[in-house]
Design a protein around this nucleic acid. Structure first.
Lengths: 352, 352
DNA sequence: TTGTAAGCGTTATCAG
DNA sequence: CTGATAACGCTTACAA
């Protein structure tokens, strides 16, 4: 090592050893909860305090093969949904002594893979992933890219063909229930704004919509024709963002024969739709039947109040943490552990 | 090592060495961009491929004292503002070969400190922090808790007394400009909803408000009296959340002598205020002068359009990355490097 | 260009 | 209970 200025080199166990006159082994043992003579206990404490010693977690990890960290990979950090999941996930893991590090792949395919790989190389003890583009094959490869199988839990979104612990919402029944409520309120001409169909949640939500209509004997296409005679589609596919909700809502309203009710299937799109409705002076719940997603704040405040599907984000994070902790502790559980959480329908019927 | 089941133990350079018949040194050198004979190049590539070798970054870090990772600590991951900063920050760092790991302290004081400490112990090469509760003394301690001074950049929020590179908004002039515009539009009785004053941004925004009024010779207290004769305060302190904006807006409207114009100083509070206004049938920009913050989506869509202060979140993340990269590269720059970014006032004057 | 060997800061084994 | 000592997987002089 060269002398580079006045660098106060970080103190190690070796320094603590010199300072206290005890051996490395004794100190390490004590620092890891072992028993030492009371007198030595004090000497070590003093030395640690005096030198400002802090364990080098890299060195420790190299030796123990554990980092006590968990990697979390999310599509974005700009939407409240994931933030809320993260918060309870982090807390659950923290209570067990783990730290979680979050990465966003910003909806990007390559980045999704890269982030996962980097985490593995950094030796996290487990991974929580809200997956989108990555394939079952790639995930298997990643999971086996180290000695023992990397503990892994999928949240919110799953990847078809990839057998893995996962915590998801019962998306199918979420939209089923929402649409059913609209049907019960007398609607027969119901539209839906869904997300990109390569995302499992979007797919499932659409299936729930279709099934509800089927079960009640309603033809999706019925009555939806454009001026030029072609069919109008009551299923509008958005990108899970504000713009999509805004635009697709307007698309619906501009139809020859607009739906009398609408189901909008995530937070941002719900915000977009509500904004568009406000702008057009369409009163949701009154002029048109409406069920949104996630925007629970909003439904309390808008008048008349909106019907909203609420997803248990906190619980999702907590469950994900719990399952991951078990896997990391090496508990043998049936594989995969799939937990499908129920969403809650805030049902607000409009009354004159 | 004991034989624990069928664990395919992860391959190391040693394995690559055996497989290829070359020495550790040669392989390491090649893997780090050094020159080897073409023939050996191939043998190594083959071995790496065959064994699925991946470098153990812990071991590497132990040796090199670099991890090529950056720790980012934020108050929350549930608001779009930080998500947007993170996105460009991550990209900037990634282009230089660094990976960023994000932690949220969920507005919690203890957690804020803990996250910083854990990151240091994990040997990140640098830290980006949006600080709130932590003191200058604590930050100095953290910055010096290792050999060389830990490169560190503050974003959005600063800590008084802590000398550090920081990328912030010119908050003072942001509200100054906003209030000035309201004054120019003829308002003399102007209220503001600010955030918690222990957050630097909130403080600065309030100062900007006060100074604008002073400069134009307007008395803040003028005319604001409650029914019981006490003063009403045109400065309402919220918590930077939706609820605060909603409630404080209503507080203002319920005053004996409500302000004729309002400045609301972050995204969530702006959303709350807009919602409350909508609910009360108060038309912002027409019935009452209004300038919000951050909610650029909204101002495009609401009618009449809102005046909004837009913060350059992307640029903030990018600049933070750039400064941090320089520090991590050991460039000698004047310390501290403080970059104060201008916000942009979307000025929408209401016309009948 | 290649190989040998030392050492990064820990933990863990095994005598004392 | 304590203390030498050998790893952990990698990088890096230095020697060949």
């Amino acid at each position: 090592m060269q002398a580079v200025g006045q660098v106060t080199t970080l103190s190690t166990i070796k320094d603590v050893s010199k300072f206290s006159g005890l051996s490395l082994a004794t100190i390490s043992k004590y620092l890891n909860g072992g028993n030492v003579r009371d007198e030595n206990r004090q000497r070590i404490d003093e030395a640690v305090e005096a030198l400002g010693y802090r364990v080098n977690r890299n060195a420790r990890s190299l030796k123990t093969n554990r980092t006590m960290t968990v990697g979390v990979v999310m599509p974005t950090l700009s939407v409240p949904f994931f933030g809320s999941v993260l918060s309870s996930l982090d807390q659950t893991l923290r209570e067990a002594g783990y730290t979680s590090f979050v990465c966003s792949y910003d909806f990007d395919r390559d980045l999704e893979l890269e982030k996962l790989r980097v985490l593995c190389n950094n030796n996290v003890d487990g991974i929580v992933l809200a997956a989108q583009h990555v394939s079952a094959k790639e995930l298997n490869e990643i999971r086996n890219s180290r000695g023992s199988e990397m503990p892994m839990v999928l949240v919110d979104r799953t990847i078809s063909g990839f057998v893995c612990d996962s915590i998801v919402i019962d998306n199918l029944n979420a939209t089923y229930g929402a649409v059913e409520q609209l049907i019960n309120a007398g609607h027969r001409h119901i539209g839906i704004i869904v997300g990109p169909l390569d995302i499992s949640t979007a797919n499932e939500r659409m299936v729930g919509y279709r099934r509800a209509l089927e079960d009640y004997g309603i033809n999706i296409e019925a009555g939806a024709r454009r001026k030029d005679g072609t069919h109008e589609d009551l299923v509008q596919i958005g990108r899970y963002d504000f713009e999509s909700g805004y635009r697709q809502f307007n698309n619906f309203m501009d139809m020859e024969n607009p739906p009398t009710a609408l189901c909008v299937t995530n937070y941002d799109m719900t915000m977009g739709a509500v904004t568009a409705a406000h702008e057009r002076n369409v009163i949701l719940g009154k002029d048109i039947g409406f069920v949104g997603f996630d925007a629970v704040d909003l439904c309390r405040i808008v008048s008349p109040p909106l019907s909203i599907v609420e997803q248990p984000t906190q619980l999702m994070g907590q469950k994900a943490g719990e399952v991951l902790l078990k896997r990391m502790a090496g508990e043998t559980l049936p594989h995969p552990q799939v937990i499908r959480l129920k969403s809650y329908l805030h049902n607000r019927i409009y009354k004159e």
